[in-house]
Design a protein around this nucleic acid. Structure first.
Lengths: 202, 202, 202, 202
DNA sequence: TATGAATGAGTATTCATTCAT
DNA sequence: TATGAATGAATACTCATTCAT
């Protein structure tokens, strides 16, 4: 691949990725065929293989993009603050917002994590996020802001809680239907802050 | 279905379920064919359909069994204690032990949660566990053992953390390889206890 | 085959044939499995193959029986009369009655006629009936009761009309639902008698 | 389905239908596999499902085409004549010619009539033909050309006789082999005309 | 770039038949 | 006689991928 694309070509590629993201999220990767994607776009199969080497390559492209966007969003939210705990909080909130707003991407990441072919990519993406968080926690521990504990474990706990609160409370699967996203976010953040040993202050 | 089975038949059925569990966990549900299962068992394809209506039915049977066993394990560990916090702790530890010991089942539950066809079953199974935990947390809140917060959210946080620490640290996916399971368990429990607002005591 | 059967064995065999007749008529020969027949009877598969060499053999047994009964019914109705035209009329009426009363058998005969494996049997069965009719018609022509025409053709016409009026007007397929069977019979007979050249007298 | 086809595609589709028609007629619908059709055409299995949704859909397409062609043939033969009896006669003759010339189609229609899945289509096709005939007979009765009788029954009789004379005398199933098609046609027409009450004039 | 057509290995499932008990 | 279990070839259908135009 690594084709040089005309502007029109770029649009096509993006269109295919968007449509595929939606279909993969709705029906699952294995239950979505290349033909489904092409038909939904209204293009022939040749087009698909012009832009992507394979169905798997398409999924990887989507996945990498999603993880990259997630991280960039977090970093943007984090950068300005000088206080490590505030940075962690901002990161959690940014993640919650991003995943709540991009539930298709969330579904794909979630699935990819369980599939032998794709989980390494997800694992790596999450590791990057966890490493970020770990740095902030180390700083907080050094400052004595939170008790001394393995910051890596704590960072995983935080990341995990974030993802799962999204999965459980902010997505269509939710039986409750109309949950207050803000309340969920607050609860997640509180759980995490307590989890890392910060005394409750709310 | 709902066939009356001879002892030999029961054995066969169990053999098929065990083999399928292993293969599904290794290669994934969609990448494992009925033929794979039959070949591994060394039986003809007809045998499979003598015992199960479909590949999907087999998976559901495995899934339901796994969720049922998980809950029973937790309940056994929980029952004796009068202190709600101790019960929650025992539940977390029992879950960690069970899932660490049955990593194939854990993989299946994990995948099932991301698949539109199976996620309702998983969701329900988890809800049952969460409801158990919620009860204990309510009691703890009533006793003033932990701060007043939505026990349902807390219970979800606990369940999630438990599952994910298993996923990340106790299974083959782990790059580290030789993690100290006991340390992981302690970390998970600590994070959860803090998360629900219990003051650190270690 | 040609097994010697105990009284109980005979009952079993007949039960299997009756159940199979019903199922074949309802769902069609190819869409009915041996397992369907056995399950409906509540017996194991071994029983089936104890009484019949194969599914095909079972069908042939049913078919032969049906054709035999049809002919015997006609002959009984025909015998007493000295007038050939009356005998033909009686034959038509007896056939109509028999087929109307045994619509399962009618369906099987009908299907068998279109299936390469079974049509020779049906053809032969119908030839026997047609030959009977041909004899009566020859006699009628010799007596000058009806115009001189190829009696074999006429006999075929009569047989055919009879079968089709049954198919169209007396069976479940009929949209009309509540047709007067007697009127249908009269119409069929009238058409046939005219068809062979008898002047209308009604 | 409802694909837009290139000229080449149209050819392929027709080729598949022709080959399938031949095979269905020879071996029967249920005994002909999709693989048989593809192999005979020398194409891969995917091709079949590019043009048809299923084996059943293919059969329905063939069936509908056959019934449509039959009717069009009859109408063309009938149109010119002002005399209702002549029109009926022309219709019978046209049907005989058409079915004699397209014995594969005749076989399929015949089978379809006995199969629960397809018989409604056949029934409807025949009803259309019968309705045509009924109109002519009504006119003939009004003119006093034939005795007053239920024209609907008469029309069924005619249609039936026509079909069966074809089945019995003009097709390969026939033991006689070399029958004079013209004589058969005359006999069929004569039987029908007498059947509706027209005095013999030959 | 794009399309419709073609490929063919692969999938779940069925079913007539056989067999050990 | 009867049963449940087993066989395995056959079946309809799918789908990622390739290719001629």
């Amino acid at each position: 691949m690594a084709r040089r694309l005309t502007p029109r070509g770029k649009e096509r590629r993006e269109q295919l990725m968007e449509v595929a993201t939606r279909l993969f999220a709705q029906k699952g990767y294995h239950r979505t065929s290349v033909a489904d994607v092409c038909d939904t776009c209204g293009v022939g199969k040749g087009v698909f293989y012009w832009y992507f080497d394979s169905k798997e390559a398409l999924f990887n492209a989507i996945l990498a993009g999603a993880l990259h966007d997630l991280r960039r969003t977090q970093q943007r939210a984090i950068e300005p603050s000088p206080d490590p705990i505030e940075r962690v909080t901002a990161g959690i909130e940014a993640s919650l917002d991003f995943l709540a707003a991009n539930d298709d991407l969330f579904n794909l990441i979630d699935f990819a994590g369980t599939d032998a072919h794709f989980s390494p990519v997800v694992r790596h993406g999450i590791d990057v996020v966890v490493d970020d968080t770990t740095r902030h926690l180390k700083e907080a521990i050094a400052q004595g802001a939170i008790p001394d504990a393995d910051p890596y474990f704590l960072a995983h706990g935080i990341t995990t809680i974030t993802l799962t609160f999204v999965r459980r409370f902010l997505h269509r699967g939710s039986a409750e239907g109309t949950v207050d996203a803000v309340a969920v976010g607050r609860a997640a953040v509180a759980f995490c802050l307590h989890g890392i040993g910060l005394a409750a202050e709310d």
